[in-house]
């Protein structure tokens, strides 16, 4: 083992990452103290990073600097208003936290109204597909469009809970919609597996290639 390789293995950034990764992944074999240690370390690091970043990238440039350097004195009002969040820790002032949360509920609702038409009107428009082969629409496209529209209607019918589904046509459409949903869920499930395994492969790759540099040995 050369001195350079040893030096690389012991680089703090890589060594800490490697030990931490092995500690966390060891949970799958057995719950152990090393896992719990690094779990707690992770929580501490994440909390500290979130706090520090909120100051350096949000509060400082958007609140402190304009207030102190830019002379925008009105921003000081954000401090007592922001303190209202912490009313949750007391019985007496808890209702004030609901006041400021209410403001954010309102803001969120407002942005939903803003975005609704822009997002969903094109979806509705695109659902009206050409169903007859003519001109630029080939027979294969028309067949696919029929499939698309039928699936869309069947799944919509499946989710109609506003009235009782008594009619045979409605019942069969809803059943067909349920079947189509299974196919869609299968596609989602297949996609879910990719992300989970990709995350695992990434960690193994980090250990073997970035830390142990095993890729060099076999090439």
């Amino acid at each position: 083992m050369s001195a350079d390789y040893l030096h690389h293995l012991l680089l703090p950034k890589l060594l800490l990452g490697a030990i931490g990764t092995i500690a966390i992944l060891s949970l799958v074999f057995r719950e152990n103290k090393l896992y719990r240690l690094f779990e707690h370390v992770f929580l501490g690091l994440a909390t500290g990073y979130g706090l520090a970043t909120t100051w350096t990238q949000v509060l400082r440039p958007k609140w402190w600097d304009p207030m102190v350097g830019g002379g925008e004195w009105i921003w000081i009002l954000a401090a007592p208003l922001g303190l209202m969040f912490y009313g949750v820790y007391t019985k007496k002032f808890a209702w004030m936290a609901r006041l400021i949360f209410g403001l954010y509920f309102g803001l969120a609702a407002g942005t939903v109204f803003q975005g609704f038409a822009e997002e969903y009107v094109p979806q509705i428009r695109a659902s009206f597909k050409p169903l007859i082969a003519h001109g630029a629409v080939t027979a294969a496209m028309a067949v696919n469009n029929w499939i698309f529209v039928i699936i869309l209607i069947c799944v919509l019918v499946y989710f109609f809970f506003a009235f009782e589904q008594n009619s045979a046509v409605i019942k069969r459409s809803a059943s067909a919609g349920r079947v189509m949903l299974m196919i869609a869920f299968g596609a989602i499930f297949g996609s879910t597996i990719m992300i989970r395994e990709a995350l695992l492969i990434d960690r193994i790759r980090f250990l073997l290639i970035e830390w142990l540099q095993l890729g060099h040995i076999f090439r």
Binding site: Q123, A126, I188
Partner: peptide, 13 residues
């Protein structure tokens, strides 16, 4: 990958 299927209706439109 898990979010991709919900992008297909918007790709269609």
């Amino acid at each position: 990958a898990v979010m991709a299927p919900e992008g297909y209706p918007y790709r269609d439109s």
